[in-house]
Design a protein around this nucleic acid. Structure first.
Lengths: 112, 112
DNA sequence: TCGATATTTCGACAACTATCGAATTGATTA
DNA sequence: TAATCAATTCGATAGTTGTCGAAATATCGA
């Protein structure tokens, strides 16, 4: 019986472009946005905007701005459900960034 | 005979503070700086400013600025030797950041 | 439809930053 | 000491971005 050709294993992250890498790093480099990501991660389930807002000392307009940044950087997914929006981490994205960063350190300790 | 208390093993990365994490991410979030880091990493040995400058389309003043940023973020070490300055990656720093980032993704895929 | 609630958009402002040329500092060499 | 070369500092500028209040948009419930 014909064995199906081995497909791409689970989810090959597909090397990050420089532009995308920069976009991710910029999105992560704001403390509020990072805190927001942490809230989403800790929630373990889609986080509503109201809950997100409760964890940050910022105005709703500012939260909306940061959500847009995180979304367009591809770090989160926003499920829009009527009046409410729910935030989840996009899996694998950070892993791609981590790969790029660890590649920088592959060459051990150059003679100082 | 008194056994010396077990010392801290090689180099415990010592959890990154939020401020430091943000500083690192900001330093990495500039494309020129990232390219500079890549040059340093690829060199495998301390990189002179002149060589660094050759790899980037920027003025010397701008390079100097970026070097200062990377240095004060703790990402590189600058050995000043007379007229010349040599750049090396500080080992382990990126690894600390990587740990923080991967901690965000520990919780797998929340129900979208 | 009307009012309440959730989120976004708009307009503005302040702070920050990347960039450069010119001037400066510091070290080497003639 | 004078000239030269490497790198930094200074001053200025343009572009970016985080922040907010107010207004707009969208959804839901009465």
């Amino acid at each position: 019986m014909p064995v199906p050709a081995p497909q791409k294993p689970p989810a090959k992250p597909a090397r990050l472009s420089a532009a995308r890498r920069t976009a991710l790093l910029k999105a992560l480099a704001d403390p509020r946005r990072f805190a927001l990501l942490e809230s989403i991660a800790k929630a373990g389930c889609p986080l509503g905007c109201a809950q997100a807002l409760a964890t940050l000392p910022i105005a709703a307009a500012t939260l909306s701005h940061h959500i847009k940044e995180l979304e367009s950087a591809g770090l989160i997914h926003v499920r829009r459900e009527g009046k409410f929006h729910f935030l989840t981490l996009r899996p694998g994205v950070l892993q791609g960034l981590i790969s790029v960063l660890s590649a920088l350190e592959t060459i051990p300790t150059p003679t100082t």
